[in-house]
C-alpha cells in the first residue's frame, strides 16, 4: 500500500506557478522570429533593398488583402479552392481508408496490389495533370480528381502499413481471450492503426493544397491559384502576394485542424517528448 501512495503522489500534477508569466514567455518565444520576418519584409522594400514594384512592402500587401476581403473577391476564390480541396480530400479518405484496411488485413490483396501501389505512389500527381484535364476537362471535376488522386496514396499506404504493424503481442493477447476475427479487427486492429492512419491523413492534407493550387494555376477560372497567376499577368503584385499569404493561412488552418483531430483520436498515445 505504501508504494501505491507514493506512486499516487508522483502522478499528481504539480501546481503551475507563475502561470501567466510562463505562458507570456511562450507566446513571445513563438512569435518573435515571425514578427522579425514581417518587419524585414516591411523595411527591405522601404529602404530600397528590393524593388518595390516586384516586392511590395508588407503593409501594402495587407492593405490590398483587406480590400479583397471587403470586396468579397478573396472569399469567392477561397471558397472555390476550399470546396475543391475538401471534396477531393474527403473522397480520398472515403476510398483509401476502407481499401487500406482491407489490403492490410488480407495478405493476398496486399501481394496482388503491391506492384500497382508502388507504381502509383511514385508517380507525381502533377505529372498526370494534363491527362486529367484531357479526360475530365478544365472544370471542377478535373481539379477534384487530381486532389483525390494526390490524397489517396499517402492515406492508403499509411493505412496498409498501420494494419500490418499492429503489435503482435496485442493480437496474441486479444486472441487468448478467444475473440472472433471480426472483433479482433474492430477492437484491436482498427484502434491500434488510428495514429499511423492519421499521419497519412496529415500528409494528404498538405498534398491537397499543394496539388490544387498548381492545378488552379494551369487551368481555372477561379480559386487561389488562379488569383495568383491572374494577378501576376495583370501586374497586380500586392494582390499576388495577398493570394500567396492566403494560401499559407489556408495550409496552416488545415494542418492545425487535422492536428487537433489527431490529438483527439490518439490522446492515449504517449507524447513523444515525455
Amino acid at each position: 500500500m505504501e508504494t501505491i501512495k507514493s506512486i499516487q503522489s508522483a502522478v499528481e500534477p504539480r501546481k503551475p506557478k507563475l502561470f501567466v508569466f510562463s505562458s507570456l514567455q511562450k507566446v513571445f518565444k513563438q512569435s518573435i522570429v515571425l514578427v522579425a520576418l514581417f518587419l524585414l519584409w516591411e523595411i527591405a522594400p522601404r529602404i530600397g533593398l528590393v524593388d518595390q514594384a516586384f516586392f511590395p512592402k508588407f503593409s501594402s500587401v495587407v492593405v490590398s488583402w483587406w480590400n479583397m476581403v471587403i470586396s468579397g473577391e478573396l472569399f469567392a476564390h477561397f471558397m472555390a479552392s476550399i470546396t475543391r480541396s475538401v471534396s477531393g480530400f474527403a473522397l480520398a479518405l472515403l476510398i483509401a481508408i476502407p481499401l487500406g484496411l482491407m489490403i492490410g488485413w488480407y495478405p493476398l490483396a496486399r501481394e496482388l496490389l503491391n506492384p500497382v501501389l508502388e507504381l502509383f505512389r511514385n508517380t507525381a500527381a502533377l505529372a498526370l495533370l494534363p491527362v486529367f484535364m484531357l479526360l475530365l476537362g478544365i472544370g471542377e471535376t478535373s481539379k477534384v480528381a487530381i486532389v483525390l488522386f494526390a490524397c489517396t496514396w499517402p492515406v492508403l499506404l499509411n493505412t496498409i502499413a498501420a494494419v500490418g504493424n499492429v503489435d503482435p503481442l496485442l493480437i496474441k493477447s486479444a486472441r487468448s481471450m478467444n475473440i472472433s476475427s471480426y472483433q479482433l479487427f474492430l477492437k484491436v486492429i482498427l484502434p491500434a492503426s488510428v495514429p499511423t492512419i492519421f499521419t497519412g491523413i496529415r500528409m494528404a492534407g498538405t498534398g491537397a493544397i499543394l496539388v490544387l493550387i498548381a492545378a488552379e494555376m494551369v487551368g481555372a477560372k477561379e480559386g487561389l491559384g488562379y488569383l495568383i497567376t491572374y494577378s501576376q499577368y495583370n501586374f497586380q503584385i500586392p494582390e499576388m502576394y495577398a493570394g500567396i499569404l492566403t494560401i499559407a493561412l489556408l495550409g496552416l488552418l488545415i494542418n492545425q485542424g487535422l492536428s487537433m483531430l489527431e490529438r483527439k483520436f490518439s490522446k492515449w498515445k504517449q507524447p513523444v517528448n515525455s
Partner: peptide, 9 residues
Amino acid sequence: FQQYALFPW
C-alpha cells in the same frame, strides 16, 4: 504476459 500487453488506447 511479461510485457503487459495492455491495449494502449
